[in-house]
Nucleic acid binder design. Sequence first.
DNA 1: TATGATGGATAAAAGGTTTTATCAACCGTC
DNA 2: GACGGTTGATAAAACCTTTTATCCATCATA
Lengths: 362, 362
Amino acid sequence: MGVTLKDVAEAAGVSITAVSKVLHGSGKSVRIAKETETAIREAAQRLQYVPNSVARSLRTSRTRTIGLVFENFGSLSEGPMYYVLMLDGVAQELFRNHYRLTILAEVSHKHVGGTLSDGRMDGAIWCKLPMEEDVLAQLAHSRIPVVALNTEAPTHPRLTYVSCDNEGGARLVVDHLSALGHRRVLYVMETGEDDTPDATARLRGFRRACQEACLPFTEDDIVFWNRDASQFADWWRSYPPHTGVFAWNERVAGAVLRRAHECGVHVPRDLSVVGFDSTPFCETTSPPLTAVRQPILEMAKHAARILFESLDKGPDEPRVFTYPCTLDVRGSTAPAAAVRRNRRKPVETSNGPILDAERGNP
Amino acid sequence: MGVTLKDVAEAAGVSITAVSKVLHGSGKSVRIAKETETAIREAAQRLQYVPNSVARSLRTSRTRTIGLVFENFGSLSEGPMYYVLMLDGVAQELFRNHYRLTILAEVSHKHVGGTLSDGRMDGAIWCKLPMEEDVLAQLAHSRIPVVALNTEAPTHPRLTYVSCDNEGGARLVVDHLSALGHRRVLYVMETGEDDTPDATARLRGFRRACQEACLPFTEDDIVFWNRDASQFADWWRSYPPHTGVFAWNERVAGAVLRRAHECGVHVPRDLSVVGFDSTPFCETTSPPLTAVRQPILEMAKHAARILFESLDKGPDEPRVFTYPCTLDVRGSTAPAAAVRRNRRKPVETSNGPILDAERGNP
DNA sequence: TATGATGGATAAAAGGTTTTATCAACCGTC
DNA sequence: GACGGTTGATAAAACCTTTTATCCATCATA
């Protein structure tokens, strides 16, 4: 169907080799006269020749394509925003270097090796690497280089990791809140995520920092967020006087803000809220959300660059890059005032000045 | 480097043909005995054979890959959320059918034909198709099927479109607001987007619906959103008494909400706000945003399905699918009350009950 | 004993490109 | 006149798979 080198060669009255040389360079022992070259170019132009990159890839075993592996892409638009940011960062860097991006989702753990080594990609970036031992082994011996993005690094396998210092990030939160005078902080976790390496690192950091700052923190201060609207009200009514909340991710933090608002609990006057993952989303809440920033865009780009290097100069020693987190202080945190202690008021009906949003009646 | 059919064939002591037949079926005149088959399977297993899909694609000229073209992917994480939703919908449908997805960004308009026809993809979905005549011509004669997603359809070119009824969507907004008693509505546009077919369709719908509902609407009621914090305050101070705002997209709507909040303007008591594109984002604002919903996830999936059909049964007649919009009424709209007329109060310092979020002091 | 069907397997072409090795011709030099 | 260097160009292999055409037995039927 398509126009091939052969067609162009015939049209120009030369060999395939000549056309290949003129149009795509390389081939050191092949020399072409100026006139022949222009004739070839003219013919290619006239026939609208488009090189078949599949054939080229077969020959060169290079596709100039990088695969991005998402453990659960299914919910890209519903998940926390940093999934989008990772994709964004990786894509930006790839495109800048004229690489193509293909997305792999729900890669079977049994056939990881196969999927990655079928020749379609030159390398892969794996977001949120799973922990299964055999998967890691497959990856470590994969025929293409693989970089783990945004996964706390296990120590043993021979892979390169780009992640952030989750433990340090959690510490920032404690430091910030305790500097503002908060003593009791609720840690809001998400079901199903609590055994990922990232989550455990954050919780670990939080625990230790509390200990060092002499803040009381027990198992009871960890709650699991369900999507139930009443949860916040229940908690607010029945819990000891926490004045701070640390939400393990941005989406949960947003939910806390909204529920607080609906219950007439004023943030940050009555309650300070901090989230993990300072994303554009945090700018859109009201009040804007104080949150731990992992430089995710930078990390994603870095992961891509590591791959480029591996592909250019052969595989490097596996390394672990850990980016420090910072804290973006916004409007959702404020000093703990003594006045907050007398906060046991009815919460069933919002007595705040803002209407219950769901009802929307004046 | 990799293990090939040839290696397996040698290991099993049979021909390449036999291995190919056993491992990948097809080839009608090839028959294999049970014992031979098991021997082959065993050898393949032992050698960890992974079929080279590039070679296969070259032979079959099928890649089982669909390209998704984004005009400006550069800002995926900053742009309105429906870009993510489109990606999500397309991806879901592709993966469900075991297609691969590759993302193309900033495709050169000069070489559209080439990029799409280099054999890497079986088909493409183009989000926000540009209007240039020559680009459309190239696409219409492309060697692979192309579907335009979320682009108001020009009438002439021979392409298949999946889009929504932008004009009708805008009408819904007018109907809703006028039913609530609003008379003056501000249309908030975004610079640089105002000459896209979608934008003009929305504005057209809005204009006509106002006319039919006998609402006054002039050119002065169209403002362009800049990212300046003072814009809302300026507008609120100097404009005639609008009681409604229609923001051309979700992100702008969110910004309006925030600015209103900061200026102590209460939504929906003082002002009703409606956005275009009802996305998960609209659930997270406070109050939650009333917005026009285009069934974007459904549309994206449909676009993918159209491609599948083209690929299976040969090209179809080009068609135009237009999805109706609906209105998701949330908390940001409320009846226009007479009390609002006396609203000329100072706005420089927020006198609302909520603290200025940026300062965050109690 | 032909004839024909069937089961089991293979050779070889095709798909489009890259790249090495080879070749022909020409010019200049010793 | 033999040799060497340079320019211009090509043939052909290799990359790995799919698929058709072909082949050889074997066995049943007429």
